[in-house]
Simulated scan of single mutants.
Amino acid sequence: MKNPKVQGRKESIISRELTLILIKEIDDVILKAVSISEVRLINDNELAKVYYSFIAFSNQTINQNIVQTHLEEKKNLIRKLLARKLEMRKVPDLSFVYDDSLDRANRIDQILADK
């Protein structure tokens, strides 16, 4: 049986390290705009679902498909860099999922503002 405290700690560490990797170690301007909102470990730490969002700067024309493509292209490198930082026996495979909660919140605010 999984210990929720240990599970939460692992998820938090992976989230923090992924954020640092994207900001400091990956040489990709588009991935520097990515923000990790949550990490969930699944199947006894075999898979880490990484929920992300991004902020498009004024001089960039990026969308979710472009960001997802860049994340998928760099996934193996990101996992390799993550393995160097974690003290886990097995580093989970990464699955990047776009977190649309901010988009939904903005849509709700817009609907309320229109009334």
Rank of each mutant, 00 (worst) to 15 (best):
M1T: 09
K2H: 13
N3K: 11
G8P: 07
K10M: 09
E11I: 07
I13G: 11
R16S: 12
R16Y: 14
E17W: 07
L18N: 09
T19Q: 14
L20G: 15
I21E: 03
I21V: 12
I21C: 04
L22Y: 01
L22C: 05
L22W: 00
I23F: 03
I26G: 10
D27S: 10
D27P: 04
V29C: 05
L31K: 02
K32A: 05
V34L: 06
V34F: 01
S37H: 14
E38H: 11
V39P: 00
L41D: 03
L41Y: 12
N43Y: 06
N45D: 08
N45E: 05
A48M: 05
A48F: 15
K49T: 04
S53H: 13
S53C: 09
I55W: 06
I55P: 13
A56F: 02
F57P: 04
V67G: 00
V67D: 00
Q68R: 02
T69Q: 15
H70A: 08
E73R: 08
E73G: 04
K74H: 03
K74P: 02
N76I: 05
I78A: 00
K80Q: 09
L82K: 08
A83D: 14
K85N: 11
L86S: 05
E87M: 10
R89Q: 08
R89V: 08
K90Q: 05
P92E: 00
L94C: 01
S95H: 13
S95C: 06
V97D: 01
Y98C: 01
D99E: 06
D100F: 11
D100Q: 07
L102Q: 08
L102S: 07
L102A: 09
D103R: 08
D103E: 09
R104Q: 13
A105L: 14
N106G: 08
R107D: 12
D109C: 10
D109N: 14
I111Q: 15
L112I: 14
L112S: 10
A113W: 08
A113K: 15
D114G: 14
K115N: 15
K115C: 15
